[in-house]
């Protein structure tokens, strides 16, 4: 619970300082900021609908939200029950309290995917670490996301501690492919970063590439979805090469290879 102790001292008016403690301070007691609401998304990828639940269990706090990535203000809708999405969307939410600074906005996206997307057979080189082998490599194409807290989800996440990871994709019959999406975990405390570079090759020739900016120190634990457009052709197989990040100087494991955690790989067919 929270309350304020009263002190009958002189009021001091001064310019405000925003500090790295998440508080606004003048001279005297600081004014603290609410944390972002908690979010639970039942399905990051969905065929028909997805539900988003929000929470902030703190006396006097309310959670407000908007859809379509619109900013949230004190006049936005108040959250009362889970929100159903029927198309790809980005929800924004903030926590408010009359005596505290509102939280930063929380953004969560869910993606509607076409149910006829062809599923490739995936092999990985090397195999995932024995500690993080999930329910097998097939989890990469089961359209199920892992939990943000990977330690509580031993099924969906595959983890590698390597410099280079290679994925081999093969289709039962040659298929027109226009793009690939890879879903990664970003969790600095667990030394997990998305790869810094992804190259998609066909018979050794690059057909698509992506460079991913190394997350900044303040970046939250998050899903990172990387979309790679590739030369639109009919393919029977592709190879995806992922280069891991060297942990940056601010990190406690500076200089070592980061872990790559991956839970989904989507392939998108050529649209006729």
């Amino acid at each position: 619970m929270m309350r304020y102790h009263r002190q009958r001292n002189a009021v001091i008016i001064c310019c405000l300082l925003v500090t790295s403690l998440g508080m606004v301070s003048g001279q005297g007691s600081p004014r603290f900021q609410m944390s972002e609401p908690q979010v639970r998304l039942d399905s990051f990828f969905f065929f028909n609908s997805a539900a988003i639940a929000l929470a902030m269990d703190f006396p006097g706090a309310t959670v407000r939200y908007s859809l379509e990535n619109e900013e949230v203000t004190a006049q936005s809708d108040e959250y009362v029950s889970p929100i159903q999405l029927t198309h790809s969307d980005t929800l924004v939410a903030r926590a408010f309290h009359p005596d505290l600074t509102p939280s930063s906005p929380l953004r969560v996206s869910a993606y509607k995917i076409h149910p006829t997307t062809q599923v490739a057979t995936v092999r990985t080189f090397p195999s995932p670490s024995s500690q993080y082998a999930g329910a097998g490599v097939s989890v990469l194409t089961d359209h199920q996301k892992g939990e943000l807290n990977f330690a509580s989800d031993t099924e969906q996440w595959l983890g590698w501690e390597v410099d280079t990871l290679r994925l081999s994709l093969a289709w039962a019959k040659p298929t027109g492919i226009r793009a690939i999406s890879c879903s990664f975990l970003q969790n600095h405390g667990a030394w997990i970063f998305p790869p810094q570079r992804i190259v998609v090759r066909h018979h050794g020739e690059s057909v698509g590439e992506a460079t991913i900016e190394v997350p900044k120190q303040e970046a939250p634990t998050a899903f990172r979805l990387v979309h790679i457009k590739i030369d639109e052709k009919v393919y029977a197989n592709l190879e995806v090469e992922l280069l891991s990040v060297r942990l940056p100087s601010w990190h406690q494991g500076a200089g070592r290879s980061a872990w790559i955690f991956m839970d989904e790989l989507l392939t998108f067919e050529t649209q006729n």
Binding site: M1, M2, Y4, H5, Q7, I13, G26, S29
Partner: peptide, 15 residues
């Protein structure tokens, strides 16, 4: 919007 009052009230945290 250029000045604000910094309340002397103290936040109490915990349960």
């Amino acid at each position: 919007g250029v000045l604000d009052i910094n309340q002397r009230d103290e936040l109490v945290i915990g349960h």
